[in-house]
């Protein structure tokens, strides 16, 4: 594997010392703004009543965490996202694979699905409440709908976009239908599939907020509403931060899980790992 890493050092764009610091560059702006706001409030230029300074938000977060509220609400929200995401991914993958693979099925199903996609997903809420009641089911259903469409579209288009010329190589080697799917179609669509899953997950997080606004007794969305009704901006910002952290964390997990299968996509990023 020595050849591999030497090949990548040749193409690496900048000196290692500089590249190593790059991820930290993104922290300059948010940290700077937070410090500036802290100073503004500390100096008494603003009361910080509508937008509390970072120290107050931090205190609220620690307080919520200490009382176990943060874990409780985060868990409620996370459960909804995971269930809705799971359902949306399964449905989107199956239908996307069918319509991407079989033109006939695409003619049959795709127009309906595209029409449904045109409906703003929140518009389903009253119907879901009538159908599923007011507890978990309508919330999970709404998240699943949000996740479904990007996954469905991503899978369908990825399968359609597989290079015909590479499929032909499979024919030359006389692959069976199953082998063609396993050895050529699946690896070929995987990068687009991961992208679709990640945008699906993003929408899942978006829709969980909407779902929890529908009325929930637990969840980060509940903390938002509660903070608004009781005039506690620090709690709102704390919930927003929790959303950001969880959203980023789940997305990173997804990317991390997919990384071993996508090493070929970016040889710069992958070469250090492949020389293990």
């Amino acid at each position: 594997m020595v050849e591999l890493s030497s090949a990548s050092t040749r193409t690496r764009p900048a000196r290692p010392a500089l590249t190593a610091l790059w991820p930290l560059a993104g922290l300059i702006l948010p940290l700077g703004l937070a410090l500036a706001w802290e100073a503004v409030v500390a100096l008494g230029w603003n009361s910080g009543r509508l937008l509390p300074p970072p120290s107050v938000i931090l205190a609220t977060l620690t307080d919520l965490a200490a009382r176990g509220d943060l874990a409780h609400h985060a868990q409620a929200t996370l459960t909804r996202v995971v269930l809705g995401f799971g359902a949306g991914v399964v449905a989107g993958t199956v239908l996307g694979a069918l319509t991407g693979y079989a033109r006939g099925l695409a003619r049959l199903l795709d127009p309906t699905l595209q029409a449904l996609r045109a409906i703003p997903s929140i518009a389903w809420v009253p119907l879901f409440i009538l159908w599923f009641g007011i507890f978990e089911a309508p919330k999970v259903a709404l998240i699943a709908v949000g996740v479904f469409f990007p996954v469905y579209l991503g899978v369908m288009e990825a399968i359609r976009g597989v290079d015909r010329k590479i499929v032909e190589v499979g024919r030359v080697f006389r692959l069976s239908g199953v082998a063609m799917v396993r050895r050529i179609l699946l690896p070929a669509v995987l990068p687009a599939y991961v992208t679709a899953l990640r945008s699906g997950l993003g929408l899942g997080w978006m829709f969980v907020v909407a779902a929890e606004f529908m009325g929930a007794s637990a969840g980060l969305g509940y903390l938002l509403i509660d903070g608004q009704q009781l005039g506690k901006p620090a709690q709102i910002v704390a919930a927003i931060i929790a959303f950001a952290v969880l959203g980023k964390l789940t997305d990173s997990l997804l990317a991390l899980a997919a990384a071993p299968f996508l090493r070929w996509e970016d040889s710069f990023a992958s070469s250090p790992r492949s020389s293990e």
Binding site: K165, I166, E168, V169, R171, V172, F173, R174, I184, P187, A188, L190, F261, W264, E265
Partner: peptide, 19 residues
């Protein structure tokens, strides 16, 4: 149909990028 006795090289290499 494609036969083990016949190999083909195309104008493009057509390698599988994930292998």
């Amino acid at each position: 149909e494609p036969d083990p006795a016949i190999g083909i090289v195309f104008q493009e290499p057509r390698l599988f990028p994930w292998l």
